[in-house]
């Protein structure tokens, strides 16, 4: 297993470099260092000298990928890409371009609010998805199954934004049950989490229930389920003990890869609910043309994705003895 993980990590290195390269290409295709300087220095009274000084002070006066006038390896190392991307490999994210804050510290601070909302959303969402999907499978062929599927299709057809605005309006404004938005520290944050978590769970419920229902329906028609029933096991035991365990491979494929991204937060959710998480951090950085933060977050995203894939592979071996690391 260890060899397998090491091999996967080694595979990841060119992927991560490629992602960084692509981020830099896309970013500097849209924004030149001059654009960044002007945006960061402000709208008024910005002179060419100030722009040049800013670029020099922040290391954006170099060519992006290739420095022709330099000698030897310096042609590649004396570039924005090399200088800014290399420290990322050891998770040195540096400081933001627009206000000089420590990005690593900011990520550490902001991941907790992101987790505070995404972890319960993920957990409750998964449990509810599986439970309702099994219920629909259990009551298959009844009007509950029919209307459950219809409702799931309707729910998955509605945009997340509608859930957010509608949820804030109904539960926050009309029924006045929860604060419409906001966040606090410690236990005081709980009252702010309920509404986004409820909305987050509801908005993904349609997709989840419909997907898992299909998985369970496929499973409960297999021979071993018939055997279990023939042994006289109750339908609940058949579903929750036997079918659920055997349906874990598609469930894990869907779920484990998402776990690392819980740190990343939810872009729209955090903005509408004023949650100071990493999703909001990323959106703000894109709007402010802060390359230092954008490249850090993209790098983190690629690492998390790779970690998610490795975790998924490992989890397969845990639930299915037939899967081996080879």
């Amino acid at each position: 297993m260890l060899t397998y993980i090491i091999r996967r990590i080694l595979y990841a290195i060119p992927i991560v470099i490629g992602v960084n390269l692509l981020t830099a290409v896309l970013f500097f295709y849209v924004n030149t260092p001059d654009d960044m300087a002007r945006k960061i220095l402000g709208e008024k009274n910005v002179t060419t000298a100030q722009v040049e000084n800013w670029k020099r002070d922040h290391g954006y006066n170099l060519p992006v990928f290739f420095n022709g006038p330099e000698e030897g390896t310096a042609k590649l190392t004396e570039t924005i890409f090399f200088k800014k991307s290399l420290p990322l490999l050891w998770f040195d994210f540096g400081r933001s371009d627009r206000n000089n804050i420590d990005i690593g510290g900011e990520i550490k601070t902001r991941m907790w609010p992101s987790l505070a909302i995404s972890l319960p959303m993920f957990t409750f969402g998964l449990v509810l998805d599986l439970f309702l999907a099994m219920m629909l499978a259990y009551y298959r062929g009844t009007y509950l199954d029919l209307w459950g599927v219809v409702l799931a299709v309707v729910m998955m057809s509605v945009s997340t934004l509608f859930y957010i605005i509608g949820g804030q309006f109904l539960l926050g404004k009309v029924l006045k049950l929860f604060p419409i938005s906001g966040f606090d520290t410690g236990m005081d944050s709980v009252k702010f989490l309920v509404l986004p978590v409820v909305i987050g769970v509801l908005s993904s419920l349609g997709v989840g229930v419909r997907f898992y229902r299909t998985v369970f329906l496929e499973e409960i028609n297999k021979d071993y389920v018939r055997t279990a029933r023939a042994k006289g096991l109750s339908e609940g035991a058949v579903l929750f003990k036997h079918a659920l365990k055997n349906a874990m491979i598609p469930v894990l494929t869907n779920v484990v890869v998402s776990i690392p991204f819980l740190f990343y937060g939810s872009l729209i959710m955090e903005r509408f609910f004023a949650i100071p998480g990493l999703g909001n951090f990323t959106i703000d950085a894109i709007q402010a043309q802060d390359f230092a933060i954008v490249r850090s977050m993209v790098y983190l995203g690629s690492i998390l994705y790779i970690v998610g894939l490795i975790l998924t592979d490992i989890s397969y071996t845990l639930v299915d003895p037939r899967v081996r690391f080879e």
Partner: peptide, 17 residues
């Protein structure tokens, strides 16, 4: 308080917050 979206900000004003 940081409120980046106008709808929640407006509704919380109407609620007196």
């Amino acid at each position: 308080k940081l409120e980046q979206e106008v709808i929640p900000r407006w509704n919380k004003f109407l609620q007196g917050y």
